[in-house]
Design a binder for these strands. Structure first.
Lengths: 219, 219
DNA sequence: GTCTATAGGCTGATAGAC
DNA sequence: GTCTATCAGCCTATAGAC
């Protein structure tokens, strides 16, 4: 049989390595995750990493690139979105959460990368980080211009926004561990609950002091 | 001479290792920082790590313990503080910033630790994380009770708070790099500016809907 | 495309001289 | 307390069989 519709086995291998790599890089960092462990996690031979991704570095960057790409396109789509800034900000938060849903380890990888000053990034992956920054900036500045947001510093606001968002997803492993060990209540917050909480929190935090519902007279 | 007032050389060695270790563990993670590099960074011989801290693990945990301890005491002092919750929350943010001032790499180390689900923590260091959680919880719940905060979920609020705070300090290396490479404006935000921004942001985000300044009439 | 076997480098730890 | 020298173990990468 000439295998027309079915996915090739090599693609399954690739995908298994991407998934296992994300999990292990997220959990243990670049140096902490050995290629041996990744291959074992993907149930694939070690040598496949060199074959498909030209080594450990290549696999690492491929994970960032292939996961960021689709989400980034959607995030950049927000630039064309004509709804008011608070709406677009909420959508941004939701999009971020969807990305995480697709590859749960990504926030941790992003965070680790940011922590190390981008040690493992190259010219292909750096732009992703800057593009997210640009998208948030555009929303915040737009909101200030249309007077739905107060006059916050866009960079500082960006940091608070991404920080609060990434931290939730990245800390789930620890909360799960603490819950398992009885150090925290067993009922842990779900992603959806946090997304709603955080959208609300940021909306209130950024809201302009005078909602400008009606035209004001000089007094 | 019997060296009465002067610090012993062994203490200088210890401190140099703690400082170099923090910097390298923060930047490269536990596995990424080799004992060789740490010793070189501290301008001290490799074997001193085993001698003073019983190996790499010991140095790592000593950094967490010795840096957390003094700050934690001050944070726990907040529990006895009788000022209204919004004031205490602001103080919490300031205290956190002061701790960072003392050992700049700490937020990154904390974050990495949280990311890995506490892989390198032992029974002596875990309580530090839980104590911070407890302190924030106490402030948030107090604020809700005294009606200065709206009815937010204390856990979710804790995550947003710590996330936004830690993220700023932990991402400074990346911002510095991007600034150096001309990818970001050269004037980077100072800690003090972020602290003020974030205190303001959280105050507004948590503020109760009805400030209760005066008794309201039914309408 | 996949696997096995192996080469070669680097890591953390420590014994023993000072 | 400090240093030098050394070692066993693990790491990544790859050559070559299938």
């Amino acid at each position: 049989m000439k295998s027309i519709g079915l996915k090739k086995k090599s693609e399954a291998t690739r995908e298994a390595l991407l998934a296992a790599g994300t999990r292990l890089f997220a959990e243990r960092g670049f140096d902490g995750a050995s290629v041996d462990a990744i291959a074992r996690g993907a149930k694939v031979n070690k040598a496949m990493i060199s074959y498909h991704f030209r080594g450990k570095d290549g696999l690492y960057r491929a994970i960032l690139a292939e996961t960021f790409e689709p989400t980034l396109k959607r995030i950049e789509g927000l630039k064309a979105d004509s709804r008011p800034a608070p709406e677009r900000l909420k959508t941004f938060v939701s999009l971020f959460a969807e990305m995480v849903d697709h590859r749960p380890g990504l926030p941790a990888m992003i965070l680790r990368e940011v922590l190390s000053g981008g040690h493992h990034l190259d010219e292909r992956t750096i732009p992703y980080f800057l593009a997210v920054l640009a998208a948030v900036q555009q929303i915040v500045k737009g909101g200030i211009r249309e007077r739905s947001f107060r006059r916050v510093d866009p960079i500082l606001t960006h940091i608070s926004l991404i920080g609060g968002l990434v931290f939730f997803f990245a800390t789930q492993p620890l909360r799960e561990r603490f819950a398992r060990e009885g150090r925290l209540p067993v009922r842990l917050p779900a992603s959806a609950a946090y997304v709603a909480h955080f959208q609300n929190l940021m909306s209130r935090a950024l809201q302009a002091d005078e909602p400008l519902k009606t035209v004001r007279k000089r007094r």
